[in-house]
Amino acid sequence: MADIDSRTSRAYARNAPDERPLRGYATVLGVFAAAVAAVAGVARLTGRQLPVRPAAGDLALLAVATHKLSRLLTKDAITSPIRAPFTQFEEPAGEAELNESPRGHGARHAMGELLTCPFCTGVWVATGLGAGLVFAPRITRFGMGVAAAVAGSDFLHLAYDAAKKTVS
């Protein structure tokens, strides 16, 4: 099986500029699938039901909160200690954000890619918030509201800075 895995990896990454850690990706996907299965199992055991149709307000709040939290986790300077075991600092990216690159091989590299990609992390964040809406909707909505307010504040700060530059 290891031979098939390495052959598959080599064939897959033939044109890639660097090694593609397929086993690491599979490990990360397995953790995600296990977490989703655990949440679904607990929901079933406790009699929790998914909404038939999510409310439009919840979806809007979920989208904005997911955006903010995924950027906070993947780009913010203050959360760099979470990413540090899996990433390497490259440079400041402006507006309190950092550019980092994944380091290591296998699962470590795959985690580094996940933790430096707001699009990738967004799936995890949205899934976690969605589970929160099933198990603890009130506190989850409150937390999503706070994250959405911070996202709005971020955009206002950027707009303010841009307006100052056009006046100067």
Rank of each mutant, 00 (worst) to 15 (best):
V64D: 10
K75P: 00
P81F: 07
V36C: 08
G94A: 08
M111R: 06
V28A: 03
Q88V: 15
F32L: 10
R48P: 00
G41M: 10
P21R: 09
T66G: 15
A93L: 11
G104S: 14
G94I: 07
L59E: 12
A56R: 15
G104Y: 14
G47T: 00
E113W: 05
L69P: 02
H105W: 08
A65M: 10
A55R: 15
F32I: 03
L98F: 13
T74P: 09
P102Y: 01
H109W: 08
A77G: 12
G24R: 02
A55P: 03
L98C: 12
L98A: 08
A77D: 05
T79Q: 02
S80G: 05
V52F: 11
P21D: 02
T116I: 04
L45K: 06
R103W: 03
F89G: 02
V42S: 01
A55N: 06
L115G: 06
S80R: 14
N99W: 10
G106H: 07
R20L: 08
L72Y: 08
D58F: 05
L22Y: 11
V42I: 15
R71Q: 09
E100L: 07
S70F: 08
E91C: 02
I78S: 04
A65C: 11
A37Y: 03
K75E: 13
P51V: 10
L29F: 13
L59Y: 09
A84Y: 11
T87K: 12
K75L: 13
Q88N: 08
M111L: 15
D18L: 11
E91S: 14
S101V: 13
L61F: 06
G30E: 02
P81Y: 09
L115T: 10
S101A: 13
S80Y: 12
A55K: 10
V42E: 08
P81V: 05
H67V: 05
V36A: 13
Y25T: 03
F86I: 03
H105F: 13
V52P: 05
A43R: 12
P51M: 10
A26N: 04
S101M: 10
R48E: 04
A35N: 11
Y25S: 00
V36K: 00
R71F: 11
G57A: 10
D76T: 02
V64C: 04
A40M: 09
A56P: 01
R23F: 09
P51S: 08
K68C: 03
D58K: 06
L69V: 14
L59W: 01
F32Y: 09
P51H: 10
P54H: 05
G24V: 06
L22Q: 01
R44W: 09
P51E: 05
A84N: 06
A63H: 00
G106T: 08
A40V: 06
E113I: 07
V64H: 04
T116R: 06
D18Y: 12
A26S: 10
Q49T: 15
R48N: 06
S80A: 14
L62V: 04
G57F: 03
C117V: 00
A43Q: 05
N99F: 15
H67F: 14
R23N: 10
T87Q: 06
Q49E: 15
E97D: 12
A110E: 05
P54D: 02
L22E: 01
L59D: 07
A38L: 15
P85T: 14
R83Q: 03
V39I: 13
R53V: 14
P54T: 07
P102C: 00
S70N: 07
E90V: 15
